[in-house]
């Protein structure tokens, strides 16, 4: 749970204009006002930097909430470690 909350914090820091502690794991990230192509690049960069996982932008299409994105990152990390 703590890791998921940390992920949400990383997201808030990576994307410009988001107030700290304003999002939750159930936030539909792609519907927030700040979401655009630049925000996507920042998210992908954050994932690469903080989790050492590279995710293609297209893979996020299957994710609706920040929890979904976190689970995608976690599963990729497990896959790469295996």
């Amino acid at each position: 749970m703590q890791e998921l909350e940390q992920f949400v914090t990383h997201f808030e820091n990576a994307v410009e204009g988001i107030e700290p502690n304003s999002l939750t794991p159930e936030t539909q990230y792609h519907k927030i006002a700040q979401w655009d192509s630049l925000a996507l690049l920042c998210l992908l960069a954050m994932i690469d930097c903080e989790y050492q996982v590279q995710i293609p932008g297209m893979a996020l299409k299957q994710c609706d909430t920040l929890r979904d994105v976190y689970n995608l990152v976690a599963s990729r990390k497990l896959l790469e470690a295996a």
């Binding site: 690049l41 920042c42 960069a45 690469d48 930097c49």
Partner: peptide
């Protein structure tokens, strides 16, 4: 590290 990741994405 973050800027390197941003640069790669950019």
């Amino acid at each position: 590290k973050m800027d390197l990741a941003l640069k790669k994405q950019f």
